[in-house]
Amino acid sequence: MRARGRRLCLLALVLALAGLLMPDASLRTPPAALVRVDSASGVDHPREVLWVLALGSDAREGQPPLRSRADAIQLVGLNLRTGSGTVIGIPRDSWVGIPGFGSDRINAALELGGPQLMAEAVAGLVGIRPDYVFVTTFTGFKSLVTSIGGVTVDSRLAFTDDNMVGSIRQGWNKLNGPQALFFGRARHFLPRGDFDRSANQQELLRAILRKVRAQQDQPGFMERGVLSATRNLYTDLSPTEIYRLAQGATRVDPERFHGCVVNGSYGFVNGASIVFPNREQARRIASDARADAELDGGC
């Protein structure tokens, strides 16, 4: 009993000393903290909503990229104010009217009349005229992905291809330049062929955006990318315009960057396999996203 009393007295003494000697909580630096961080971003660009026609040219070494067929056709809408984006994929074999050349596969427009005619052909199908046309080759695309240290894509499907070397597993895949090119080109073993491939290209765009945004805070990262663009792009934009465009494009949040692929049905014209695009769907998507690059009604 007495021992217990002594222990209680000792405890009381320790507590009293602690109370006297320890500084008041308000005077100490807490060992941990939880604070709110709010952020804001904005970029001034002459256009609030930009539409960029992104083309993958299938030009081989020595061939002019601007006068070769387009292997990938993606119409990208970027809302620099809200940070949202929309991408509309167009199957390359879509049978459309090409101004001055009758009807043909849409990818022939680049070969027949360069970026301008390609923009007109896309506008004729979808109803949105792009502000810029971006053309890259297989080599250029691989270099782009390599320069940002590869990308990570979320694949809906596992697939390989009988024409190209590569394999993709379902779910997340970390890809280097050549692997990313495979992901964007392979179609033979995809259930919906060109339609699935177009969706994969959209996932690639999303992955590139994710990667660039993750690194844009690194000192010099954006500047390195812009310098590389001025050296490797065939362009009529001034370097300052490229810089502002690049800074604006990275405002778009990958989680708010949604894509649709224009559907259609396979058919034959003069013995050649083509796609009859669903024009009504293409127009509906474009009508939904034209003003704000947001897909309110889905695909």
């Binding site: 990229p65 301008q116 810029y132 971006f134 890259t136 080759t137 080599t139 065939y234 362009t235 009529d236």
Partner: peptide, 26 residues
């Protein structure tokens, strides 16, 4: 060959829609 290109449509917006000059002119 150049591996990537950006072209800015150089036409002027018109009532019937903008005219797209050859983006890479000049």
């Amino acid at each position: 060959t150049t591996q990537a290109e950006v072209a800015r449509p150089s036409g002027v917006a018109a009532k019937a829609g903008r005219r797209y000059g050859v983006g890479l002119r000049g």
